[in-house]
C-alpha cells in the first residue's frame, strides 16, 4: 500500500511522540541514579540531571554497610521467598480442589468469591489482627494475610480446567491420592501459570511496606521499602509536621546521596528482572479482564 504524504509526516510525528514518552519515563530514573553517584557540591548546585557529575560510589558503600539496610534486605529476601512459596501452594491446592466435584462445593465457592467484594476495611482488620489474633511484631503478620488471592485462584483454576481429564484418571489408576496428583501431576503441567503467579506474589511481597508500618513497632522486622520510606520521607516530613524520629535515626539523618543510593538499591532487583517477567503480568492482566 502506498503511503500518502500525510501518513509519512504522521509516522515521523509518532516516533517523536514515543521518544518523548521514553524521555518522560526514563528521566526521573536516570536522575536518581545520577544523583546517587554525583558529588555533593554538584547536587547542591542543582547541576545534576541525567548524567553523573563528580562520579563516586561513596553513597553505595554507606548503604551497603548500613546495618539496618542489610537487615531489611535479609527480611525482604526471606519474606519474598517464604511468602511466595506458601502463597503458590495455597493457590494451587485451592484451585485444584475447586475444579473437582464434592459435597457443598457451591457454598465453599461462594465463601471464596465473596471476599473479592467485601472486606472488613482498614480498622476492623487492624483490630482483629492486632488485638484479637495478637500478631503485632511478628513475621506472620507480614506473610499470612497476603497468602490467599481469590483472583489468582480463579486464574489458576481456569488453567487446570483446560487439562484433559484422562491425566487425572491415569493418576488415580496409578494409585495416587489427591495430594500427590496436585503436586506431582498438575504442578508440572501448569508450570508457566505457576511461574506467572509466583511473579505476582513475589512482586507484592518485595514491595510490601504498609503492613510493616501499621503492625511492626521495631526495626528488626523492617522491609526494604519501609526502610526506604523512613530514610527518604521522615526527614522531609519532619520539616513540616511533628512526625518524630526515633533517636537512633535522628543521629543518622541521611544525606541526599545516601537516600538516592538507597532508592536505586531497593529498585534495582526489580528493574533487572521485570523485562523478563513482564509478559506474564500482561497475560495475567488480560486474562483477568476477560474473566473479570
Amino acid at each position: 500500500m502506498k503511503k500518502t504524504r500525510g501518513e509519512i509526516v504522521f509516522q515521523y510525528f509518532d516516533v517523536l511522540f514515543m521518544i518523548l514518552i521514553l524521555a518522560i519515563i526514563l528521566f526521573p530514573v536516570l536522575n536518581v541514579i545520577s544523583l546517587s553517584v554525583s558529588s555533593r557540591d554538584a547536587i547542591l548546585n542543582k547541576e545534576v540531571s541525567i548524567y553523573p557529575i563528580g562520579f563516586n560510589l561513596a553513597a553505595y558503600e554507606d548503604v551497603m554497610s548500613n546495618t539496618q539496610f542489610k537487615r531489611s534486605l535479609l527480611n525482604n529476601v526471606f519474606l519474598t521467598v517464604i511468602g511466595t512459596f506458601f502463597a503458590v501452594i495455597v493457590t494451587l491446592m485451592t484451585s485444584f480442589a475447586l475444579t473437582k466435584e464434592f459435597l457443598a462445593k457451591k457454598i465453599i465457592s461462594y465463601y471464596f468469591v465473596i471476599t473479592m467484594y467485601f472486606s472488613g476495611g482498614l480498622i476492623p482488620t487492624y483490630i482483629i489482627v492486632a488485638n484479637v489474633l495478637k500478631l503485632r511484631n511478628t513475621y506472620a503478620v507480614l506473610i499470612l494475610p497476603s497468602l490467599v488471592s481469590v483472583f489468582y485462584i480463579i486464574v489458576m483454576r481456569s488453567q487446570i480446567e483446560t487439562m484433559p481429564s484422562s491425566v487425572f484418571e491415569a493418576s488415580y489408576i496409578d494409585g495416587a491420592n489427591e495430594f500427590q496428583t496436585v503436586f506431582l501431576i498438575v504442578l508440572p503441567m501448569i508450570a508457566p501459570t505457576i511461574a506467572a503467579i509466583s511473579m505476582f506474589f513475589a512482586l507484592s511481597f518485595w514491595n510490601m511496606w504498609y503492613n510493616v508500618m501499621i503492625y511492626i513497632d521495631h526495626d528488626k522486622h523492617w522491609t526494604l521499602q519501609y526502610f526506604l520510606r523512613v530514610v527518604v520521607f521522615e526527614k522531609f516530613l519532619s520539616q513540616y509536621s511533628s512526625t518524630s524520629l526515633t533517636v537512633e535515626f535522628e543521629e543518622m539523618i541521611p544525606e541526599q546521596n545516601f537516600r538516592n543510593a538507597a532508592v536505586v538499591m531497593v529498585a534495582l532487583p526489580i528493574v533487572c528482572i521485570y523485562p523478563f517477567v513482564q509478559k506474564y503480568f500482561v497475560k495475567g492482566i488480560i486474562s483477568g479482564a476477560v474473566k473479570g
Binding site: V90, T94, A97, Y111, G120, G121, P124, P145, V148, F179
Partner: peptide, 20 residues
C-alpha cells in the same frame, strides 16, 4: 486441600468483616 485457604480467609477476611 481447601482448608489452608479457607482458614486464612476466615482469619483475615471474615473475622474483620465481623469486626465491623
Amino acid at each position: 486441600l481447601l482448608l489452608p485457604g479457607m482458614l486464612l480467609l476466615f482469619l483475615f477476611n471474615y473475622m474483620p468483616i465481623g469486626g465491623i
